[in-house]
């Protein structure tokens, strides 16, 4: 995974970058699977490795295959490095992964895990959290997807109509 990420950052052949990025998505899907999150792995494999690779390839065929060579810019680079350092420093304060006292395991999760079988009657807790406990959030997500699709439709579909006139 690290190798693919470094390749994506360094290569100038955008076609290869898109391909390797797809492989990166597939690898991270495998990682999610190893961490017992098949729902997330599913999404990553379908969206990250599948559909977005296709959309990027389509965009590439409109824009051209190779990245333009640019002068190395020091201000953005130093900004990124500083931000990275701050973020890494922030992770030092994070609780250990998998520790039972972590806030993640203390807040609403025990209730979801223990009660959702009785309240919702569905074995897959992810689904019951997604669609029932957090129904409002999911509704928001659907509206976002719809709005994004509508935006692309207005941008791309609208131009086509003008050409026909």
């Amino acid at each position: 995974m690290l190798i693919t990420a470094i390749f994506v950052a360094l290569s100038r052949d955008l076609m290869a970058v898109v391909m390797v990025f797809g492989a990166y998505s597939l690898l991270s899907a495998g990682m999610f699977m190893v961490m017992d999150a098949p729902d997330v792995a599913f999404t990553e494999a379908a969206v990250g490795a599948g559909v977005s690779t296709l959309l990027m390839l389509m965009a590439l065929s409109k824009t051209g295959r190779f990245e333009r060579r640019v002068e190395r810019q020091w201000l953005p680079l130093s900004l990124t490095l500083v931000t990275t350092a701050v973020l890494v420093y922030g992770t030092l304060d994070m609780p250990k992964v998998g520790h039972p006292e972590n806030p993640v395991h203390q807040h609403v999760v025990p209730r979801y895990l223990e009660e959702s079988g009785k309240e919702i009657g569905i074995p897959n807790v992810v689904t019951s959290v997604l669609a029932s406990y957090r129904g409002f959030d999911t509704f928001g997500e659907v509206v976002v997807v719809f709005t994004a699709g509508l935006g692309v439709f207005l941008l791309i579909g609208g131009i086509r109509r003008k050409e026909n006139r």
Binding site: P38, D39, F42, T43, A46, V47, G50, I122, P123, A131
Partner: peptide, 18 residues
Amino acid sequence: HGKLGPGGAFQAGVILAS
């Protein structure tokens, strides 16, 4: 089957679209 096993509507939508 999203209620029983892994998966759900978002993933299924992408699969149908594919």
